[in-house]
């Protein structure tokens, strides 16, 4: 048996983290006998209480507390509840995890993650450079720290609408300087500076998730078109697609970065058929359960890669397979909540 720790157990219906979906993929992976530990950042992260998917739940320090705080907490957890593989699922925690990878290795914890340099290459501020390198179109992006940019950005050739984004999360389409300033302030309060401004590309959004093998290869890509959006722009329904042009673009990116680890590529296909790279997320997406649904269980593949085991057999992803996301309540005993609050542990 192998014990896998997964973070990102937040799962608010309007904007879920990927952790529960990753755990669910592993639960359903044929020939994988896994014990699953969920890591959360709030006592109300539902994944911590979902015994179907997580055998234990723990709270971690916020990423802003730094890498050593994380290392200490993980060591403490590992002492009483050893785990073999760690799959971080949130963008904001990755810089910390990469900095403590060697410490984790000493504990015997394996990961399958990009290097710090690879992480920087795909950072939202630098996307233009990477896209140019991989010969993919990319909307103009820049980081700003002052909202007065929106008043004078016309002079620099920025046209409304434009997209205002946080370095880690959140994106809003702004149609006027006033809109943009509101989005800017909201993002800056939550995720700090810089705030990113991106040219708005008209067209249809497509997403691709896969795992980079670290040698330039892309394993088991699953592609998806969102068919229903929440008011935060997150998918609540989607359908698996098969698009060779998107796959080619993703392979170029993976090759250019020699990406190691999970990733999600977001592109917009303009009416003229050009693919514009919008974002590369260094983790599985919240819709990763679709990968199990189409017979390409990517989390399972990642665990095997981390453990140097042979890859599970993948089928050809079945285009047309759909998902529809729904919310349901789990019943939590006050004692379990108390345990999370007082000790940061649900056992």
């Amino acid at each position: 048996m192998v014990t896998v720790a997964i973070s990102g157990m937040n799962a608010r219906p309007d904007n879920p983290g990927p952790g529960v979906a990753v755990a669910r993929c592993l639960r359903e992976a044929a020939d994988l006998d896994a014990r699953i530990i969920g890591f959360g950042y709030d006592a109300l992260d539902p994944g911590l209480y979902l015994t179907d998917y997580c055998d234990a739940g723990y709270l971690l320090p916020y990423p802003s507390a730094g890498d050593q705080a994380l290392a200490e907490r993980l060591e403490e957890i590992h002492k009483s509840d050893p785990f073999d593989v760690f799959i971080p699922c949130l963008d904001a925690e990755l810089p910390n995890v990469l900095r403590i990878e060697q410490q984790l290795k000493k504990l015997g914890v394996r990961t399958w993650l990009p290097s710090e340099d690879q992480l920087k290459l795909r950072s939202k501020e630098r996307l233009n450079e990477l896209a140019a390198h991989a010969e993919i179109a990319c909307p103009r992006t820049r980081g700003i720290t002052q909202p007065d940019f929106f008043q004078r950005c016309d002079d620099e050739g920025w046209k409304y609408p434009l997209v205002v984004k946080g370095v880690f999360y959140d994106a809003y389409v702004a149609h006027s300087p006033a809109d943009a300033a509101v989005a800017f302030n909201h993002i800056a309060r939550t995720w700090g500076y810089p705030v990113l401004v991106q040219e708005h590309i008209k067209g249809e959004e497509y997403n691709l998730t896969g795992v980079g093998d670290g040698e330039g290869g892309l394993l088991g890509a699953v592609m998806m078109k969102k068919t229903g959006l929440t008011d935060k722009g997150k998918a609540w329904a989607g359908v698996a697609v098969s698009d060779q042009a998107l796959l080619d673009a993703a392979q170029k990116l993976i090759k250019a970065t020699r990406w190691r680890g999970p990733l999600e590529v977001e592109v917009i296909k303009s009416p003229s058929g050009t693919y514009h790279l919008v974002e590369i997320n260094p983790r599985f997406p919240a819709w990763i359960y679709l990968s199990a649904g189409v017979g390409v269980n990517l989390p399972h593949a990642l665990v095997n890669l981390a453990l140097s085991r042979p890859l599970p057999a993948f089928g050809e992803p079945r285009a047309g397979t759909m998902f529809i996301r729904y919310a349901l309540e789990t019943i939590v005993d006050l004692g379990q909540f108390e345990s999370i609050i007082v000790n940061g542990v649900r056992e």
Binding site: L334, F337, E338, I341, V342, N343
Partner: peptide
């Protein structure tokens, strides 16, 4: 453990 629950208000 120091965990306190108020059954009237629902606060803890």
């Amino acid at each position: 453990s120091g965990f306190v629950f108020d059954p009237v208000s629902g606060h803890s």
